[in-house]
Simulated assay, not measured.
Amino acid sequence: MLKKRRKQNKRRSLIVRENPRSPVSEQFRTIRTNIQYASVDQDMQAIMTTSSGPEEGKTTVNANLAETIAQQNEKVLLIDADMRKPTMQYMFYLANHTGITNVMTGQRDLQDVIETTGNEALDVVTCGPIPPNPSELLGSQKMKDIIQEARTLYDYIVIDTPPVLAVTDAQIVAGMSDGVLLVVASGETEKEEARKATDLLKQTNAKMLGAVLNRQERKNSNYMYYYGD
């Protein structure tokens, strides 16, 4: 069991922190720059990331993106709002005993569940106990209040949500966010699925920042453009 846990943690490593000069890390910096350009005419403080389906690498993309933004000395809060299958705790070797679900249910204040990471500019809020009613919690006024409070404390908020085609959670959070990124896995995500996911997200009137093509292999290289789960 211990060996399996270590393997999982290694597989979900923060490549932008461990190998900042790699081509993969450079691509994350490109995503960061594109987001900053997108904020010229509109505030892009709260960024939500989702995927069309499971196992497309959205959590790894989210964590590396948040770390990349924080490397510019921007204060970043990374929130795991995937209350169906939370995995952000594995990215940062954190416990998941308390988290955002405890804040939503009034058991904790936001600042009580904020976890520090190896980067002083990056903080994380894990999911916490998995609730029986994720969609209702995410659509509550309390979730809006949490995001609003985070806006007063951080320069950027990066929110990880479940796949958009599986449940309505991502659509709910998209309506509270300034911009949305859709992660698609090269050679795995069907075009129709990506198109349907985009259409569903657009219905929330959220600004689509674009798609992150994950796991695309580079020719004559052992690296990938984007790191995957």
Rank of each mutant, 00 (worst) to 15 (best):
T49M: 15
T60G: 09
A38M: 12
L2H: 15
P20I: 06
L200N: 12
E192M: 11
Q111S: 09
T33D: 12
Q216K: 15
L201Q: 11
Q71D: 08
P132E: 08
A63I: 07
G139V: 11
E217F: 05
S140T: 05
V61I: 15
S221D: 14
T50W: 11
S221I: 13
A95P: 03
Q111V: 08
L65W: 07
D41F: 10
Q171S: 09
G187H: 15
I147P: 06
L137I: 12
A121K: 06
L94T: 13
F28G: 15
S13V: 06
A121V: 00
K58D: 00
K58C: 00
A46G: 00
A170W: 03
N64W: 10
L182H: 01
A46K: 02
T152K: 09
N119P: 02
Y154G: 07
Y226V: 11
C127I: 00
L137K: 09
K191E: 07
N119T: 05
M48S: 07
N205M: 03
D41H: 10
R17F: 05
R195F: 03
D199Y: 05
N96A: 02
R215C: 01
A150M: 06
E56G: 08
K207P: 01
V164A: 11
I146A: 02
I15Y: 05
T60M: 14
S177C: 14
V125C: 05
L200G: 07
T105N: 06
K144R: 07
E56I: 08
T68K: 03
M1Q: 13
P129W: 08
I15A: 03
I130Y: 01
Q216E: 15
D145P: 04
L182R: 02
Y93I: 05
I35C: 10
Q72S: 15
E188R: 14
R21K: 13
A166N: 08
E67Q: 06
T49Q: 07
Y156T: 06
V16G: 13
E149K: 07
A63G: 08
D199R: 12
L213Q: 11
I147Q: 05
G175M: 08
L122H: 09
V24A: 15
L77S: 06
M83C: 02
G118F: 02
L181D: 10
V40S: 11
T33L: 10
P20Q: 03
L110K: 04
L110R: 05
P23A: 07
Q45K: 15
D112Y: 00
E26P: 09
F92E: 04
V183T: 12
Q8K: 09
E193L: 14
L213T: 14
T189K: 13
P20G: 04
